[in-house]
């Protein structure tokens, strides 16, 4: 699979990769008011990396991202849980949300909720999950299952 690389596909993927990542971030941040959210965002980002895999195989995938996928998982979980714990520390219930409005000058006023951080955690976990799936089942670790085929 890795030998037959098409230049056109490669280029398309390059272009689309970043578009998809941007889209995923949009979904993440817009989710509270529009369809979307951390899940959908994370999944779109996963699709971006999936495309990389389809185009370039597992080596391209590991080149495009240097942090181990497990770290995404761990950090994502930590993010989500700590969001809950913060409210616990401030004397509220676990996972209790607070609404912020921030004046970002040029971009105008943004009203958002603390659960955004929670959603970022979700995003990271979903991303880490799909990366790990692609790396493992796709055989990126030198334990290529093809070698055991008779």
């Amino acid at each position: 699979m890795t030998q037959r690389r098409s230049v056109i596909l490669d280029l398309c993927v390059q272009a689309e990769f970043h578009t998809l990542l941007l889209l995923s971030l949009y979904l993440l941040f817009a989710g509270h008011n529009q369809p979307g959210g951390g899940f959908a965002g994370g999944l779109v980002a996963s699709c971006a990396f999936g495309l990389r895999y389809v185009a370039g195989g597992s080596s391209a995938l590991s080149r495009s991202i240097s942090i181990p996928a497990t770290t995404f998982l761990g950090v994502g979980m930590l993010f989500a849980i700590l969001t809950g714990c913060v409210s616990l520390l401030t004397g509220h219930e676990f996972l209790e949300s607070a609404i912020f409005s921030a004046d970002l000058m040029v971009l105008g006023t943004v009203k958002t909720s603390s659960v955004l951080f929670f959603d970022i955690g979700v995003y990271l976990v979903v991303l880490g999950m799909s990366l790990l799936l692609l790396q493992q089942l796709g055989g990126a670790d030198g334990t290529d299952p093809d070698e055991v085929q008779p």
Partner: peptide
């Protein structure tokens, strides 16, 4: 807090253990 900790503490620890893979 007492009710939440049995669930949250192991999960936090699990997250740390994943980071410390």
């Amino acid at each position: 807090v007492l009710l939440v900790l049995p669930i949250v503490l192991p999960l936090l620890a699990a997250a740390l253990a994943i980071i410390a893979y």
